[in-house]
Amino acid sequence: MAGVADPHQYLAAKQRWAPIEVAFWLAMLLPFVLVPTYLPLASQIAITAIFAVSLDLILGYAGLVSLGHAAYFGLGAYTAGLIAKAGWGEPFSGLLIGGAAAGLFGHLTGYIVVRVRHLALIMITLGIGLLLYEVANRASWLTGGNDGLQGVAMWPLFGSFDFDLYGYTAYAYSLAVLFAVVLAARRLVHSPFGLSLRAIRENERRMPAIGAPSRARLRTIYTIAATIAGIGGALLAQTTQFVSLGALSFERSAELIVILVIGGTGRLYGGVVGAIVYMVARDRLSGMNPQYWYFWIGLMLIGVVLFLPNGILGGLATLLPRRSRAS
């Protein structure tokens, strides 16, 4: 990318598809053939990846660390679940409504969130998440409270594909949505708007000085990230046909940060790779050792920090150019 002087050319160059990206997406189809009995896991990985990409937009690109991102995920999940419970089980529209509800809440809370930084930001997002969790717990007449929301009945996807026990429909659906989300996020981060976010991340005070309103842009990206998180949540509600308070929990927000940092922040695919690595490792380890698996997860996290300080993708990125130079 060195040598590209014109910013528009730079962005256009970034927009082009690299062969490795194409290969990556083709590889995402492999579970259908290679491990067809792992599709329920694969679809939950895809959903977590959507959620992680949404966090990456605010954390990796705009520098807003949130410890309450599950609020939007859970809101999307409950919205989609409640619509289906009320009798409208069409998946695609449910997905959009779930995303819209989360986006609206994201827009409203965005006014508070962009005012603060550092620890206060982390704690305020955490507070918003915990408050919403308590609201959902308290409103058990609506949400089913601790027992979870039951009676979520989905219609077949596009009128013809039932959500089956093997998870074929669920994975195909989740993967298609993940693809669409990454596509949209890709355009976004490689647009002038995306560049301005990175500029805000690097130096927030300077941006208003050169005529770019920092807070308004941060609110916009926060709303977009909340919408995507809501879509992820709605997808989880639809593919599992169940919503619980766990969708809103602090643990989910915290785990998401872990996933994103493992994969690598600010790299678009970091969340996707992190979701795959973390959830596959978790599934394998807890299958082998149900009681002490988190010991090994803990070691894995420490190993990532010590040996791959920029996450897995960061590690790969330092390897790849070297290889190409050598050849």
Binding site: T37, N146, F242, S244, G246, Q291, W293
Partner: peptide
Amino acid sequence: RKDVGGIAPEVAKRLAQELVVR
């Protein structure tokens, strides 16, 4: 044996699915 890790119905459902199909 499968660990569900806490209140996590989506995990419980997935584990049940996997136990049945795999």
